[in-house]
């Protein structure tokens, strides 16, 4: 029996009296294409924050490929292969997209560890031609080729949204968490994102938070529905779309709830 890529046991997070994550048992298999849905305020972002280490849980545990990572800081989880995007852009405003992605690639390689990694940390970033080309390719794949060396702060929102994803991909994760990556951007850009995500290595486990059910059904093979911090149900796309309770609390509210 193999370990799941990511697992939570009785995970709980409270903000004062509010239970944002309510005793969640979650299991993500390697190579999963999983969607996490639920109305606004259901606790989706909080759950991702707990998984990535941006928040500490009140109780319960988190396991990455069998290792208990509950006490690990976010940076250590990232180095262990867990990467995420943010619902609200979290970018390096003063850097260029190319610098951001080169940095992330260098960081992912450093994870290999040892003194070689340490040496690389202090070698000119411009001296590793292959890495720069790789960074450029990641950005060009997201149609960002025209703004490689513009300061991120000066770019349009849609482009910044794509940079969110570029950085998360550059970390070469084994588990990728995408928090509403397609929120607030054009239809064209949404299709672009879906295409890029769809072409990711099949061994990578991916969780997508998304409100657009059309996008969810095209991407996901399995779905978890979160309501008031708790898992309402988990199942295949067919099971979830047929589930009466889900229709009532979520699908019934219309596609862009």
């Amino acid at each position: 029996m193999t370990n799941p890529a990511l697992e939570t046991r009785a995970l709980r997070k409270t903000f004062g009296g509010l239970v944002a994550t309510d005793t969640v048992d979650f299991r993500l298999e390697a190579g999963a294409r999983h969607a996490l849905i639920g109305p606004n305020g259901a606790g989706k972002t909080t759950f991702v924050n707990l998984l990535s280490g941006a928040l500490q849980p009140t109780s319960g545990s988190i396991h990455l490929e069998g290792r208990d990572i509950t006490a690990w800081p976010a940076s250590k989880r990232a180095r262990a292969g867990l990467s995420r995007t943010f619902q609200i852009n979290q970018l390096f405003a003063g850097l260029t997209p190319l610098q951001s992605v080169v940095l992330t690639l260098a960081q992912a390689e450093e994870t290999g560890g040892g003194s070689a990694g340490l040496m690389d940390l202090f070698r000119s970033a411009g001296s590793n031609g292959a890495r720069i080309e790789e960074a450029a390719a990641i950005l060009e794949n997201l149609h960002l080729g025209a703004c490689l060396d513009k300061e991120i702060a000066t770019l349009a929102y849609g482009q910044q949204r794509l940079i969110e994803i570029a950085i998360a991909l550059a970390a070469k994760p084994r588990v990728l968490l995408l928090d509403e990556p397609a929120a607030g951007i054009s239809q064209e850009e949404r299709e672009l994102i879906l295409g890029v995500i769809g072409a990711l290595p099949s061994a990578m486990a991916i969780v997508l938070i998304e409100h657009d059910m059309d996008l969810v059904f095209r991407f996901a093979r399995s779905i978890t529905v979160l309501v008031n911090g708790a898992v309402l149900t988990t199942g295949s796309v067919a099971e979830i779309s047929a589930d009466e309770r889900v229709r009532k609390v979520y699908l019934g509210e219309g596609e862009h709830a």
């Binding site: 941006a54 940076s75 250590k76 979290q90 970018l91 390096f92 405003a93 970390a171």
Partner: peptide
């Protein structure tokens, strides 16, 4: 620029 993201890409 962004400590939260820096941590999220694995920077100690």
């Amino acid at each position: 620029d962004n400590r939260l993201r820096a941590e999220a890409i694995g920077i100690p």
